[in-house]
Amino acid sequence: MSEEVAKIGIVTCSDRASAGLYEDLSGKAIIEVLTSYLTSPWEAVYKVIEDDKITIEEALIELVDKQKCCLVVTTGGTGPAKRDVTPEATENVCDRMMPGFGELMRAESLKYVPTAILSRQTAGLRGDSLIVNLPGKPKSIKECLDAVFPAIPYCIDLMEGPFLTCNEAVIKPFRPKKS
């Protein structure tokens, strides 16, 4: 019997990258980090879209409801600039919010830069999927994913999603011991 292939949405929210003004390094950084973490089969569903609330909402809904991604990871649009609306779009499409993700990512980022307090990344649940907002810089993406990813496989387990296995030499997921 073959393992279920987990679909993971990767969304870069950037006006300039979506217009082709520069290469999207952030979305590629997410794929690279997840590839280093995951040993179970998975497929990236990758999008580069403009920093527009309705566009972001539509992309998240499509990835969860139509593409059936168990996890959607966004990058960009989490700062205080007027066009940074990823957290609002995420909140608008989620059934329940998971504020601990944003709290931990900010705490981790504060170890490196004092401006981490300007970040508004968050996470939430839509149906059977977890949506996580990451910052836009590739270095910060890895730092934040290293902090929160240990909880993600168990979160997906609780939502009855695919069982994600990891290269424990790279990242060790936490799953409670069965009693």
Rank of each mutant, 00 (worst) to 15 (best):
A17F: 11
I54P: 14
S14M: 14
E143K: 02
A151T: 11
K28G: 02
R16C: 12
R96M: 12
P80H: 03
T74R: 07
K53N: 12
P173G: 01
E91A: 11
I10V: 15
E143F: 00
D52M: 12
T165A: 04
P135A: 12
G124Y: 05
A44T: 09
I49D: 04
S40P: 01
E108P: 05
I56V: 15
V93S: 03
C144W: 08
V64N: 05
C69F: 05
V33T: 07
E88H: 08
A123W: 04
L63V: 15
R83T: 09
E3F: 07
K7W: 04
K47G: 04
D15M: 08
P150K: 09
V48W: 07
S2A: 05
Y37R: 03
E103Q: 13
L25K: 15
I141Y: 01
D128V: 01
T115C: 07
D146S: 10
I10C: 06
T122E: 01
Y37V: 01
P135H: 12
A6E: 07
C70H: 06
V85Y: 01
S26K: 10
A17L: 11
S179F: 02
A169P: 00
S26H: 10
S18C: 12
G77V: 14
C69K: 01
V11W: 10
T12N: 15
P162C: 11
Y37C: 04
E50Y: 13
E62S: 14
V85D: 00
S14D: 12
A89R: 05
E23H: 12
R126C: 06
R16I: 11
C144G: 14
R83D: 08
E103A: 11
L60M: 07
P87V: 00
K66C: 10
L125N: 00
V64H: 03
L164T: 00
F174A: 01
V73A: 05
I56S: 00
N167D: 14
G79R: 09
K53V: 15
P153Y: 03
V11G: 09
E88P: 06
S2N: 08
Y37P: 02
K137F: 15
K53P: 07
A29S: 14
S179C: 04
V73D: 02
D65R: 09
E62D: 15
V48L: 14
G27P: 14
S26W: 05
T35A: 09
L34Q: 11
P176D: 11
E160I: 02
T75E: 07
L110W: 05
I56C: 04
M159S: 09
S119W: 02
G77T: 14
E23V: 15
P162G: 08
I31R: 15
K142M: 07
C155E: 09
P99G: 11
N133M: 01
N133A: 00
P87E: 06
G100C: 09
S2H: 03
G79K: 10
V72A: 06
K68S: 03
L71N: 01
I171P: 03
C13W: 01
